[in-house]
Simulated scan of single mutants.
Amino acid sequence: MSDPISIRKIFEGPASRQQMFALFDRHARRPTRGQDEPAALYAGEWFEISEAEHDYMFEILPPLWIRGSMFAMREFMTGSVTSVFFALRIDGALRHFHGYCDLSDHGSVEAMRLAIIDRESRPVRAMTREERLEHIWSSTANAYRGYAGDRWPPALQGERTVMIWSNGKGTILKLLNELTDEEIAAKLPVQFRHLPDTVAA
Rank of each mutant, 00 (worst) to 15 (best):
L188D: 05
A186Q: 06
H135K: 03
F192I: 09
R95D: 05
I117D: 07
R26K: 07
R145P: 01
G68C: 02
G168R: 01
E45G: 09
Y147R: 04
L176M: 14
K169R: 13
S2C: 09
K169N: 08
S80R: 13
Q191I: 00
I136A: 05
G79N: 07
R30F: 01
S80A: 14
E120T: 01
M77H: 09
L176G: 13
G92Q: 00
G168L: 03
L195E: 04
S2Q: 11
L88T: 11
M1H: 08
I7C: 05
D102C: 07
T32H: 15
T82H: 03
L103H: 08
F21I: 02
N177V: 14
R26T: 00
I184E: 15
K169E: 13
P4R: 12
F76I: 01
A28R: 06
V162R: 11
E59W: 01
K9A: 14
I5L: 13
I5E: 10
E131R: 03
H54P: 03
T198K: 14
A185K: 14
F47N: 01
P31N: 03
I116M: 15
K9L: 15
E53C: 11
R67E: 12
G107T: 04
E120G: 04
P154V: 12
S83C: 10
I136W: 05
R145D: 02
F47Q: 01
S104F: 06
M163R: 10
N142E: 02
G146W: 08
I90K: 02
D55N: 15
A39K: 12
I117V: 15
L188E: 07
F21D: 12
P189R: 09
T82D: 04
F97N: 00
A185V: 04
S104T: 04
A186F: 05
Q19F: 07
L195C: 12
T171E: 06
L175C: 06
L41Q: 10
C101Y: 01
V81K: 08
